[in-house]
């Protein structure tokens, strides 16, 4: 126990690394989600197709396969050398972004077509309609599933331990190997992740309560 106590500061530094990967990954995932999700609905073939292929490929393989590919295979292929942290953020962002892209698409399509028609009748350009009429309504529908994506992203950050990023999981492994106090350190690891994922759920609920305020029209309220 004393042995583990000596390593605790080192362990908790990992929380910072994990949070960093989570936040950067989430930002990337959101950007990817809107780009690919809206792109997949484009009327232009050259935009729609690549977006659809991207989404299907990244949803069709798991984050760990993509992580190993970006970490081991990509440098040999394109002569790009990513740091383990960069590879982790990139893969988690693209992977969760591909799931979130389908959420964006579903939410935009859930806004009644009459909203588009009404905006057209008011002579509003398509781009403005999307930005001022459709997205504000779709955003409310996106929030709950985005919360799930964020929780999944947090859990997937543990995978970066397998490409030697010193996150919580990897540090726990190192401490286990050094001290042999397996039960204590892994028990602690489980508790820290529970706190992190529950924190995200809490944050999501707070956001959900605030979001629809001031919105005259919310999906499902016709």
């Amino acid at each position: 126990m004393d042995q583990v106590a000596a390593f605790l500061p080192y362990f908790f530094e990992g929380t910072w690394v994990t949070l960093q990967i989570f936040v950067l990954g989430l930002i990337l995932a959101l950007l990817v989600a809107f780009a690919a999700g809206l792109g997949r609905m484009s009327s232009i073939h050259a935009i729609r197709w690549p977006c659809a292929v991207f989404i299907e490929v990244f949803r069709g393989t798991s984050a760990i396969v993509q992580l190993f590919w970006f970490f081991y295979a990509l440098p040999l292929f394109l002569d790009i050398r990513l740091t383990p942290l960069m590879a982790g953020v990139l893969v988690l962002g693209l992977n969760q972004g591909s799931y979130a892209a389908e959420i964006v698409r579903g939410a935009v399509q859930s806004v009644p077509l009459t909203q588009w028609e009404a905006a057209t009748a008011l002579n509003m350009p398509k781009r403005t309609t999307l930005r001022r009429v459709i997205l504000p309504q779709a955003l409310v529908a996106m929030l709950p599933p985005f919360g799930n994506v964020a929780v999944d992203l947090m859990k997937n950050t543990s995978l970066v331990a397998l490409v030697t990023v010193l996150d919580l999981t990897y540090r726990a492994q190192l401490i286990r190997a050094t001290t042999g106090e397996t039960t204590i350190i892994f028990g602690l690891l489980v508790v820290v992740y529970l706190i992190l994922t529950n924190g995200i759920s809490l944050l999501r609920r707070m956001l959900e309560r605030r979001m629809p305020a001031g919105l005259a029209y919310a999906p499902g309220r016709e």
């Binding site: 929780v151 859990k155 997937n156 950050t157 543990s158 995978l159 331990a161 397998l162 999981t169 726990a172 492994q173 286990r176 397996t182 039960t183 892994f186 690891l189 489980v190 992740y193 529970l194 994922t197 529950n198």
Partner: peptide, 22 residues
Amino acid sequence: IEVLRGTPFLVQLFFVFYVLPK
């Protein structure tokens, strides 16, 4: 259910793999 859903699969895997033999 809360613990199973709130922790990463990799961590659960390590937990069972390293803790049970103890």
